[in-house]
Simulated assay, not measured.
Amino acid sequence: MFSIIQAAGWPIWPLLLCSVLALALIIERLVSLRAARIVPPRLLDEVLQLARGPLPGPDVVSKLEQHSVLGQVLAAGLRSAAQQPRIGEAGLRQAFESAGRAAVHQLERYLTALGSIATAAPLLGLFGTVVGMIEIFGAQAPGTAGSPQQVAHGISVALYNTAFGLAIAIPALLFYRYFRARVDEYALRLEQAAERLLPLLLRQSAATAAARAA
């Protein structure tokens, strides 16, 4: 491998940097986008059960917010309902939507960089190949013709960059598409969870308004 890197020349060093960066981003996203950290399986049922009684206090809401991404979205609705007892459906939906947008932005972190690497790696490989071809033909003296074996060897060495660029771009693109699908799935599940909690919070708001009116 080291001999290939030496033969490919200096254009391969940006590709090596891209490969290390892509691997780091893939590992980070695999760890961060685990379902247990985004939408724990029993959290929604526990919050729904909690919302059927008196609204929880600020300490409970803060712990829920720190629990997971789903907890952040649900905590936004609970906090809005507790701070504004007469809040309507539009206000609650606004709170959920704001928290949802922030959550999706958090889930999409580093995906743009990974997609950029998947797009740029083949171009960097092609650039390295073109540079290598220029060096091969530029090294020949005017009026002389190099042996076909030497030219063929030089071309094969120049193509190392293209091959390396494709080897980086293909897995980076596959993981980028995979992570995008995971983010879309999580966004849908967050939206569905908010829709299930919304009627309970509206019921609490209506009960509080009726009690104050009485």
Rank of each mutant, 00 (worst) to 15 (best):
Q49S: 14
Q49G: 14
L50Q: 15
L50E: 15
R52H: 08
R52S: 08
R52G: 07
P54W: 09
P54C: 09
P56G: 02
P58H: 11
P58S: 12
D59H: 13
V61Q: 10
K63W: 06
K63G: 08
L64T: 00
L64V: 01
E65N: 13
E65K: 14
Q66D: 15
H67G: 00
H67Y: 00
V69K: 08
V69S: 06
G71S: 02
V73C: 02
V73S: 00
L74I: 01
A75K: 03
A75W: 05
G77H: 06
G77V: 01
G77R: 07
L78K: 03
L78I: 02
R79N: 12
R79P: 03
S80D: 13
S80V: 08
A81L: 08
A81E: 07
A82M: 15
A82H: 11
Q83E: 15
Q83L: 14
P85L: 06
I87H: 04
G88P: 02
G88D: 11
G88M: 07
E89R: 14
A90W: 05
G91P: 03
Q94Y: 13
A95N: 04
F96D: 03
F96L: 04
F96T: 00
E97Q: 14
E97K: 14
S98F: 14
G100Q: 15
G100V: 03
G100C: 03
R101S: 10
A103H: 02
V104M: 08
H105M: 10
Q106W: 09
Q106H: 11
Q106C: 09
L107H: 02
L107D: 00
L107F: 01
E108G: 10
E108S: 13
E108Q: 13
E108V: 10
R109G: 07
R109D: 08
Y110P: 05
L111F: 08
T112V: 11
A113W: 12
A113M: 12
G115D: 14
S116V: 11
S116D: 08
I117Y: 07
A118S: 11
A118L: 06
A120L: 15
A120C: 11
P122W: 06
L123Q: 05
L123H: 10
L124S: 00
G125P: 03
G125R: 01
L126N: 07
L126P: 04
L126D: 04
F127W: 14
T129S: 05
T129A: 06
T129L: 04
V130S: 07
G132H: 01
I134A: 07
I136F: 03
I136V: 15
F137S: 10
F137M: 12
G138T: 10
G138F: 12
G138R: 12
A139K: 13
A139E: 07
A139M: 07
Q140S: 14
A141P: 11
G143M: 05
G143N: 03
A145H: 09
